[in-house]
């Protein structure tokens, strides 16, 4: 049951991290409004391959908005024109017959392009390695109900923990800042009693790593919040800034930087 939308796509193509990329223009017909955006791209690739061309590379896996793998800037918007969804949840009914759609990768120096619209987000893993965890070895945990966590606190931690690490916040920011991602993890862990012990070291180490990775400064324009598929709010950035200031004031330089 194919549909009848005709579209013009301008898709970013780039052989690898070192080569220069460019837009390629493709015309595609027979698109159904019930297709997801990625199914539309599957259709494009099937057509390309039938013509003996390799098709376009784009990242995806779960295709239900939770793994954080899909990552396209569509008409200038990370994850496209719908709210609170990832690229894989976007459907073609959001577009009209005859539309031109521009498709690009996340653009940030900390996210180098691997191919076409596929980028490398290893910098996010390194930020987590710096302090985005609670130090508890397997088997050393107390009974799960030993510490009660007030519901509102646990809910707020959860709102922050909903981050899927896709990087849309970085792609949306003119400075390529990763503040929303880092703030979400800092808040998730620091709101919980289990995470409080390491709270200061965590915020310092994670922010430090974020800077090292080459992410820019917060522009305070809140584009990140608008692009976030999980509705993570910039309030967490404010919370992180307060924690960071508090931690730098208290934390003697000699302590910070010690083995964690």
């Amino acid at each position: 049951m194919s549909g009848n939308m005709n579209l013009t796509l301008k898709i970013w193509t780039q052989k690898n991290a070192k080569s220069k990329g460019q837009f390629e223009t493709i015309k595609i017909g027979g698109i159904s409004p019930d297709m997801s955006f990625l199914e539309m791209l599957d259709t494009v690739n099937e057509q390309q391959m039938k013509e003996g061309k390799e098709g376009f590379a784009f990242d995806h896996d779960c295709r239900e908005g939770i793994c954080g793998m899909c990552s396209l800037v569509i008409n200038g918007l990370p994850h496209g024109p719908d709210n609170l969804i990832t690229t894989c949840q976007l459907h073609m009914r959001k577009f009209k017959d005859g539309d031109t759609i521009v498709i690009e990768p996340w653009r940030a120096s900390a996210f180098p392009v691997i191919r076409d619209c596929v980028v490398d987000r290893y910098s996010f893993d390194r930020i987590i390695q710096a302090g985005g965890f609670i130090s508890v070895n397997t088997g050393s945990a107390p009974d799960a109900s030993a510490i009660a966590v007030p519901k509102d606190q646990s809910e707020r931690a959860f709102d922050a923990a909903a981050c899927v690490g896709c990087g849309a916040c970085v792609a949306a920011c003119k400075n390529s800042s990763a503040m929303l991602f880092v703030a979400a993890k800092v808040s998730h862990l620091n709101y919980l009693p289990q995470g409080k012990v390491e709270a200061k070291r965590r915020v310092l180490a994670m922010v430090d790593q974020m800077d090292k990775e080459g992410f820019g400064n917060c522009s305070n324009l809140y584009e990140c919040e608008a692009a976030c598929p999980k509705g993570i709010t910039v309030d967490f950035i404010a919370k992180m800034n307060r924690e960071y200031l508090g931690a730098t004031a208290i934390y003697a330089e000699k302590v910070y930087g010690e083995e964690m």
């Binding site: 050393s140 945990a141 799960a144 009660a148 646990s154 923990a161 995470g195």
Partner: peptide
């Protein structure tokens, strides 16, 4: 099974809680 829940809570997994703060 019970050890898993203990481990996950200690790691910061935000399981659903009731108003008393318990799981």
């Amino acid at each position: 099974s019970n050890l898993i829940i203990d481990q996950c809570v200690a790691q910061g997994v935000p399981f659903g809680r009731d108003y008393g703060g318990l799981l």
